[in-house]
């Protein structure tokens, strides 16, 4: 019981927010579906070595472009590799990119947004104008430009995506902090003589995270899609490492002869993004105090 309680504390503070979320999600079927798909994805990525039926990089040129069969449910690609196994291993890339990008964005966004909102003044002005500049660029285009400059590698993809993604988090955190720092309980702490660090860490930040959790969940879907897009354009992972985007990209040349190479990873990709969005929507509804009666 204790570790579970601590985890709950860590994630949601000490209120019963988790139980409220669970209560809400119980009746929110789309969000439950989303959550199920996400759990499946995570399991797939973690246990890829055990569940993938074949070596994802094992080539068999004699059986290239083979359509789905009992033996290979998702068929084989242009080098005769098992697509199911490649998708399973590809989920590692997708999820890693998602988690890393969102974590970096969150760290940068929270730090800058908190500074901006809590201190205000010219610091706020500078940070928010920088954020505006980033937001003014089309995100994916900026990422393409950055990977072109930084060089082709999955790390650069993640760095580029985080750089285009943080301003959104900074903005949300800032507005949340602006609201919360004016609330009476923060003033009460100030009257008690609590230091700024204590007020920020103990009262303001923990109460600012609810919308960020929602944003991060939906952001996961965005990051996975962006990585697939960059890999599709050849800016992401290097062959032969499997990634959903690169599988789709290579299948492009055989779209009429072997449509399964593009469509099946495409469906998996779409389903994953849908799952994150549905779950994010559900979380938003669950955390919306107006919907609690």
């Amino acid at each position: 019981m204790r570790p579970l309680k601590d985890l709950k504390k860590l994630l949601f503070g000490e209120s019963s927010e988790l139980s409220i979320i669970i209560e809400h999600l119980k009746s929110d079927k789309p969000a439950l579906f989303g959550l199920a798909v996400i759990i499946l994805l995570v399991l797939m990525a973690v246990f890829a070595d055990f569940i993938s039926p074949y070596d994802p990089n094992l080539q068999d040129l004699s059986r290239r472009l083979e359509p789905p069969s009992w033996e290979h449910p998702f068929g084989r690609d242009e080098f005769g590799r098992d697509i199911l196994s490649r998708i399973i291993y590809g989920s590692r890339i997708s999820l890693t990119v998602g988690v890393v990008v969102i974590t970096i964005s969150l760290l940068i966004g929270t730090a800058l947004g908190a500074l901006s909102g809590y201190i205000g003044g010219w610091i706020d002005l500078v940070i928010m104008r920088v954020a505006d500049i980033f937001l003014a660029f089309p995100g994916l285009l900026l990422a393409i430009g950055l990977t072109a400059v930084l060089g082709q590698s999955i790390f650069n993809v993640m760095a580029a995506l985080a750089i285009v993604n943080w301003p959104g988090y900074a903005r949300v955190i800032r507005s949340q902090i602006l609201y919360i720092k004016g609330l009476d309980y923060v003033e009460a702490a100030r009257i008690m003589g609590a230091s700024n660090a204590r007020i920020l860490a103990s009262h303001v930040l923990p109460n600012s995270f609810a919308p960020i959790i929602v944003l991060a969940t939906i952001g996961m879907g965005w990051a996975i899609l962006a990585e697939a897009g960059l890999s599709f354009l050849g800016l992401g992972v290097q062959p032969p490492t499997p990634s959903w985007g690169s599988i789709i990209a290579t299948g492009r040349d055989f779209i009429f002869r072997a449509p399964h190479i593009t469509t099946i990873p495409g469906i998996v990709l779409a389903l994953s993004i849908l799952a994150f969005n549905l779950f994010g929507d559900g979380l938003r509804d669950a955390l919306d105090p107006r919907l609690r009666i």
């Binding site: 000490e14 209120s15 009476d184 309980y185 009460a188 702490a189 009257i191 008690m192 003589g193 009262h203």
Partner: peptide, 23 residues
């Protein structure tokens, strides 16, 4: 800081004056 511990304040709205994440 030493003097402020000798005074305290009670606010109007008991729904905003207590941190919802603290027991």
């Amino acid at each position: 800081q030493n003097i402020r511990r000798r005074m305290s304040m009670i606010f109007q709205d008991p729904f905003t004056s207590l941190d919802p994440r603290k027991n």
